[in-house]
């Protein structure tokens, strides 16, 4: 068996239509895992699927803020896949809002998808007969923003810090059932969304971002590698922690 082999593992990936979710779905498929791609944009999910290897992957197009559909979602996935082995929640919203313009409606929108959807997914994922009793892994996607302050990131940082807090308690609660729960905290990764942001920035402004990362900015595949490891049996002794993947961003004072 190869290192991080995911043969026989059924993994749910939200936010699979682009960026980190897409890169992770592709990598999981290359490691022989089967993926349920979840997102809102069916055409983009189809594109992700076209980049994947192996067979048996499924696409479910759903608005993750409509929690009333989760019962149907998990019914459909388990009917197709049987027991599940992994859940990765990439879907999220990042709004850059100075506190002066951080209205409760914007905060609510971020909380709904970044935090509440994750907890609701976990609630369904951990129901009896859903996860494999031999072991399963949950990965939440936090951010360096949870621990490092920056102007206009208050709302987003709150949602990510809350995720990290949730992961610690969930890990303790789920350990007896062999379900590991971790979060990853990426720095600046060159996703499609961030490349679009880069195009609106001056060279000077973008260089400032790069300079905060000693190893430079990351690629989606860098993050996918870590997630695949956390989903694999090789990470069997890792739970309740947040792993930074940030090119050294957090190492700077």
């Amino acid at each position: 068996m190869n290192f991080c082999d995911l043969t026989g593992k059924n993994i749910l990936v939200t936010g699979a239509s682009s960026g980190l979710g897409r890169a992770t779905s592709v990598l999981v498929s290359k490691l022989n895992g089967r993926v349920c791609l979840i997102g809102r944009n069916e055409a983009a999910l189809d594109e992700t699927l076209s980049m994947m290897e192996g067979a048996g992957h499924i696409i479910i197009s759903i608005d993750l803020c409509d929690y009333s559909r989760y019962d149907w979602l998990f019914g459909a996935v388990t009917a197709e896949f049987g027991m599940l082995h992994g859940l990765v929640h990439f879907a999220g919203v990042r709004k850059t809002l100075p506190v002066k313009v951080l209205k409760t409606e914007s905060l609510k929108q971020m909380l709904e998808i970044n935090l509440n959807a994750f907890l609701e997914l976990v609630r369904y994922f951990t129901r009896k007969h859903v996860p494999d009793p031999e072991g399963a892994a949950i990965v939440a996607v936090s951010s360096v923003s949870a621990l490092r302050g920056a102007p206009a990131m208050t709302g987003y940082a709150c949602t990510k810090a809350a995720l990290d807090g949730a992961v610690r308690s969930l890990a303790c609660e789920m350990a007896p059932r062999k379900i590991r729960v971790n979060s990853i905290a990426p720095g600046h990764v060159e996703t499609e969304m961030n490349v679009a942001v880069k195009n609106t920035l001056s060279v000077e402004a973008y260089n400032q971002i790069i300079q905060t990362h000693p190893l430079g900015t990351g690629q989606p595949t860098d993050v996918a590698n870590l997630v695949a490891f956390l989903l694999s049996d090789e990470a069997r002794w890792i739970t309740g922690t947040t792993i930074f993947i940030d090119g050294g961003f957090m190492a700077r004072s």
């Binding site: 850059t96 100075p98 002066k100 313009v101 609106t200 001056s202």
Partner: peptide
């Protein structure tokens, strides 16, 4: 100041759904 600029950029994004970047501010 820079925070006022950031606040305005955020408000314009929320109100009109368009992005003003630092390139525009040049």
């Amino acid at each position: 100041d820079s925070l006022a600029a950031l606040s305005l950029i955020s408000m314009v994004d929320e109100e009109y759904g368009i992005n003003i970047g630092s390139k525009d501010f040049e």
